[in-house]
């Protein structure tokens, strides 16, 4: 299960922390012994890195995981403004990963806080199930947001 269920986060709430997954990688996964990681392993690693950046509010780094085409449309400054001061992501988990050729769909479970929506002005903590599409472009996996 761990190979398809990776977790990242600071305050995980009810989600399991999967640093254990990384430790197990050292011992058992093919990538750890020099074999080329599977598509799922590659994508899981990218997902984890992207969400680590989002949780740490390093939006410029997170922007670097977006597909080249999307990055041309939405630059890092605009991307930052989607979240900064509005939403803080707290935790992220992959609840399933389905890959076909150059596309993988990740079923994510995300915990975040919405920092007040005018005129209501209170913080709202939420867990959301979100499907994210990762695409392979020139040998690398990139997140392709819906918009």
């Amino acid at each position: 299960m761990l190979n398809t269920f990776s977790l990242v986060g600071i305050n995980m709430g009810g989600l399991k922390i999967s640093l254990l997954g990384s430790l197990m990688c050292i011992a058992v996964l093919p990538a750890c012994v020099g074999l080329k990681p599977s598509v799922e392993e590659q994508v899981n690693a990218r997902i984890e890195a992207y969400w680590q950046a989002m949780i740490q509010k390093d939006y410029e780094k997170a922007h670097g995981f977006l597909s080249p085409g999307f990055r041309l449309k939405v630059d890092k400054f605009v991307y930052r403004n989607r979240f900064a001061g509005k939403t803080s992501y707290k935790a992220a988990a992959v609840d399933g990963l389905s890959c076909e050729e150059e596309r993988c769909q990740a079923a994510m479970i995300l915990e975040y806080t919405v920092h007040g929506v005018p005129p209501y002005g209170f913080e709202f903590n939420r867990t959301e199930e979100r499907k994210e599409l990762w695409v392979n472009v020139e040998g690398e996996w990139w997140l392709l947001p819906k918009k």
């Binding site: 989607r82 979240f83 939403t87 975040y112 929506v117 005129p119 209501y120 939420r126 979100r130 947001p145």
Partner: peptide, 15 residues
Amino acid sequence: GSAAIFNAATGIYFP
């Protein structure tokens, strides 16, 4: 009364 539609992934906000 009022309402507002917000999306955490895109930042859209329609009050």
